[in-house]
Design a protein around this nucleic acid. Structure first.
Lengths: 190, 190
DNA sequence: TTTCAAATGTGATGTAGGTCACGTAAGTTC
DNA sequence: GAACTTACGTGACCTACATCACATTTGAAA
């Protein structure tokens, strides 16, 4: 599927725009191609926009003072990713975003999103619902963190995103689950 | 401050409504009073709306199969609380909401919020930003969970909400931090 | 095809925090 | 004020997981 159709199908799940409106909406997105390992946002950068994934897999992650990596999100096709804290508050990035595989994305700048939200009520509705869902998912993950042990969280993750198992190296899965790669290795060899 | 002015001041931080618009907006909120310990939403309930806190302190929490409590949020004045997963997807509550102290709240039903968002573009903007901020805060808490030990998280919490220390019993603080009450007790006696 | 780096497996050992058990203190209710 | 309940403190012990060290496998690059 082409970029435009992919985004249109995604949007159409939440709102209905006329073709004219959608063309206008779409005209604000910049297609970008990245190679495996390429960095899209690095901590310290000014964050210019957010990214809608068409193809491939991104990860957003935090690196602490001990250089330990914590993965916030794996972004698969039709997912959105950015450093939203930095983006919304116009601050420097504290979160990194890079490519686990080669990737095709559409980039939407913060200014353009706000402009579009302002011009087209339905678009604001779309972005409200996108964040609503993200918020609920984030709370669920937090609860799972407090409630469940690593093995449980591992099985939960694979049940929800079986595709990850083949695409993503195990040490990144560990960094998402918040356990060491050694512990993760022991978990599924028993 | 009266209920109306409190909500108006809160809203005005994000959007500007005419007095007429705000009166209309406000007319959809139902004032409710609760006593300390009273339950607002219990797991299994149908969730009818969300709650804007005027006075007092609520907690939203999950109880697992072992009857262990995990606190998602302490809701102080001008905070919003509900079981948003249930509310947005019209499902039965899995999260509980009750009163740590006597409380005054304004209740807004899901239907009315959606109606208001639809009728007044600015209102949709307000709720988009409210969730945006909630999402970012939730991600930060998740990161803190993965990154920091209990002592660090305890100090972080008190630095951010010093008021909690006096209002909220320690075992609830522990349930927010995701540690046992015994461990929390040992943390601040050393 | 060789070479090097990244990813993974696995043993030994350390530790933060859980659980259990029991105590005291402080509010609540009658 | 007595009787209860709820909050809090603290010792003894246990467990999930981290860390370190090193071996092995896989994959990319040259």
């Amino acid at each position: 599927m082409q970029a435009k159709e992919t985004l249109q199908a995604h949007i159409a799940k939440t709102i209905s725009l006329t073709n004219e409106q959608f063309d206008y909406f779409f005209s604000h997105f910049k297609p970008q191609s990245f190679k495996k390992g390429q960095v899209i946002i690095a901590a310290g950068d000014k964050v210019d926009g957010e990214y809608f994934v068409l193809d491939g897999c991104l990860k957003s992650f935090y690196i602490n003072d001990d250089l330990k990596m914590f993965i916030l999100q794996f972004a698969m096709p039709t997912w959105w990713a950015s450093d939203y804290n930095a983006l919304y508050s116009n601050a420097k990035a504290t979160i990194n975003l890079d490519c686990i595989t080669d990737a095709e994305v559409l980039c939407l700048s913060n200014d353009d999103r706000e402009k579009l939200c302002n011009e087209i009520h339905q678009v604001e509705h779309f972005f409200r619902w996108r964040t609503n869902k993200g918020y609920v998912a984030s709370q669920k993950r937090l609860l799972s963190f407090m409630n469940n042990d690593a093995k449980h969280r591992y099985e939960e993750l694979l049940a929800q995103y079986p595709a990850l198992y083949n695409i993503v190296p195990k040490h990144l899965i560990a960094a998402y689950l918040g356990v060491s790669r050694e512990t993760l290795s022991r978990l599924y060899h028993s």
